[in-house]
Write a protein that binds this DNA or RNA. Sequence first.
DNA 1: ATGCCTGCAAAGCTTTTGCAGATGC
DNA 2: GCATCTGCAAAAGCTTTGCAGGCAT
Lengths: 133, 133
Amino acid sequence: METQDIKKAGLKVTLPRIRILQILENNEKRHMGAEDVYKALLEAGEEAGLATVYRVLTQFESAGLVIRHNFEEGHSVFELAEGEHHDHMVCIETGTIIEFHDEEIERRQKIIAESHGYDLEEHSLVLYVKPKS
Amino acid sequence: METQDIKKAGLKVTLPRIRILQILENNEKRHMGAEDVYKALLEAGEEAGLATVYRVLTQFESAGLVIRHNFEEGHSVFELAEGEHHDHMVCIETGTIIEFHDEEIERRQKIIAESHGYDLEEHSLVLYVKPKS
DNA sequence: ATGCCTGCAAAGCTTTTGCAGATGC
DNA sequence: GCATCTGCAAAAGCTTTGCAGGCAT
């Protein structure tokens, strides 16, 4: 139930927030820009402001409900934070986004950070790929 | 000699281009935003327009002279493309940027892309770290 | 009832573009 | 001399913010 997540985040359970969460859950694209979410809202017959979408997505990000990515510069895309951590592969021809996880890479990252005297807090790994020729 | 690189890129050797290349070569920070480069130009007593900085940096990027990164959303940073490929570690407390290279990770990336039917064209890996506590 | 939300419009930032004059070759 | 380049100012694209009214509790 979405409303629980919203409440747990310390936010009031309002219609726009419920709808946005539902869109992120049910949309065929798991990675959506603010504009995408906004359009999906309108198509679903909801009245909403783009500013609200931005505000809510940012709040959801702070609450850990969604993850913000910057695959390409100029705009962010959001993804529901469910399941396990994973990285992304973006096809530069079709825009397709594929998720993957590699324990080996995760492990190396931690080792590298520590060998420089740091703790690894987060990381961003994006592979830009092309269909095999 | 910088002028050779500019010429090889098919660009006219103009003062602004030479100066920008020199700044990227000599500045203490290896990773600079357009605004940083612009300020450095002014401090060096050069007359220049911010638009020119953006245009030149983009041309240099196309020519492979510089690499554009998007460590944080909202703006790009540029780095002279010299030496070998490497990835980056950003300290979220001090902003320090450390370069590193790990053959193991490079290899895994290629394998992962191929196991999904793709060729790896490029990748972006940034570790966000904190001084060891 | 009260304080948090929302929509709208305006503003903010980085980056791009149009244009007339300047410059490199 | 001619094409390319530059600076300025305006515009564009994404995102944030101020404000007055609206809604959840």
